[in-house]
Amino acid sequence: MRSRIATVASLLIAAAVLSVLPFVISDYNVSLVARVGVFFIAVLGLDILTGYTGQISIGHGAFMAIGGYTTAVLSRDHDTNLIVTMLIAFAICFVVGLLVGLPALRLSGAYLALVTFALAVSVPLLPLKWSSFLGGRDGVQTSHEVSNLWLYGVAWAASAVLFVLAWLILRGRVGRAFRAVRDSEIAAVASGIELPVYKTLAFGISAAYAGVAGSLFVLANNGFAAPDEFGVVLSLQILIGAAVAGLGSLWGVLAGAAFVGLLPSVSSSVPVIGSTHGQDVVFGAAVILVMLLLPDGFAGLLTRIRRLARA
């Protein structure tokens, strides 16, 4: 009961801080925190897949690319409402995620990592092939740009909605099934859980989240979708975010998202490694250190601190 209250309280605090924040910080900082919201959604999506079902994806940037291009192309060609494009991106990526999840059914961890990585490398190359439709190397520009405040509001509203959605999905039967898949596939089958259904479903949901994140990512990028924006490093960053986050904690996911969302701008002001690639050094070193020192990510760290405080 107490933990329930604590959870609700922390949610309310987070919501309150986030709704006041844009009115007290500069417009530039609003855009930064909006970026964190974008990554929050992507990391949350991967957290559902990896944390709950134990499947790995090194290809979530590919789903983000699909979501991002969906928004950009629909806006360019039909001037579709951007929120609507996000919903469409959600649906398309859900379906694509199911399709990727299907071969994943037969694959153990190593193969799955490999397939999703190849996906991350391949998808951003498709616009180069179908350049008349997808803009080639020059990319696709949405019909209009959005303000930082709009982006902030939409990104965090979407974050909230998707967070609640994830909570609803994971707390019930589906969540139990996901965890059973992770803990022991054989036991899960033995206890009558339809493994293929849930493994694929997890992939679909996770990809759909990444799709929405991709839409917002493009909007955060001044409405510009281009292959280089969705390079393989983006996929790696999301994985890093999820590793930093640890499993199943709002604060963990926030920390992971803040880490990948803010690091590029923070690190550029750091001397010596403040070059464009300094952030890669920090990213790489940080994720390795987290894996070595904080096996359960930021979430695990919080649990430990709480336990210490209680003792």
Partner: peptide
């Protein structure tokens, strides 16, 4: 965990070489 470490290495090495 091991795969994530290799992913971290990927990014780290890339950064170091560029640096």
């Amino acid at each position: 965990a091991a795969v994530i470490v290799t992913v971290g290495l990927f990014v780290l090495i890339d950064g170091i070489v560029n640096w």
